[in-house]
Design a binder for these strands. Structure first.
Lengths: 113, 113
DNA sequence: AGCTTACGTAAGTGTCAACTTAAGGATTCT
DNA sequence: AGAATCCTTAAGTTGACACTTACGTAAGCT
């Protein structure tokens, strides 16, 4: 999971993900979209592959890459869980704060009376 | 956005985020949850702050940190957009693949006829 | 077999990130 | 003012990361 998060923290890798998301593409095809060297792209592809975010298929001298739905879904669920777990906590905290303010204001009234 | 993604790619920072999510906590309080030095935590706090994921409040000699809902929400929306944009693409790709298979199988039948 | 094509891997470099210890504010207490 | 507390910033180290060029490998072509 760590690997997946690190993987998508890199802009070029996110761009690669978008490229292979709806179509299988060869390494060369992918590399052509960027102005860095091909080995650089090759290395990004390895990172994505090791994070289980893409899938590699070899055909002749070519290597085709495409999105790996299971890995992507796992990452999405992790993030969603992170948010869910916490946004509800944030909400509780906000409500608590509201109550605190309400009490404080009631105290003001008592003191001023 | 980049900064926020990099920020949450670090396990300790995610843990810090969870700590300050539903309660404001002092730097020392936060640091007590980890077995790295306090400066290390201080630096993580700075990263989170610069990514607009937490908020700092000074009171006397203490510094209190809490979640920064706007920044977190922005990050959440970015990720959701990323998924939405792409999961629909994945879905289209899957359907296309289905049609391809269907055509192939129809072709088989024609060839075999 | 030899040449070409399409890639990856190796090795080296500059930069950034996470950590450490040491030193420097800022605020409060006496 | 001086001492103590709480925390950050500074400086230095180590390892990771994104990139480069050079080399290696596997499949197809002649």
């Amino acid at each position: 999971m760590e690997a997946a998060l690190k993987a998508i923290a890199e802009p070029r890798r996110r761009e690669i993900l978008r490229l292979v998301w709806d179509a299988e593409r060869s390494a060369g095809d992918i590399a052509a979209h960027f102005d860095v060297s091909r080995p650089a792209i090759s290395q990004h592809l390895r990172v994505l592959k090791e994070a289980d975010l893409i899938f590699e298929r070899r055909e002749g001298t070519r290597r085709y890459y495409r999105a790996h739905p299971e890995g992507l879904e796992e990452l999405r669920e992790f993030l969603e869980g992170f948010w869910e777990e916490n946004l509800s906590a944030l909400k509780r905290a906000a409500e608590k704060e509201e109550r605190r303010k309400a009490r404080a204001s009631a105290g003001d009234r008592r003191r001023h009376a």
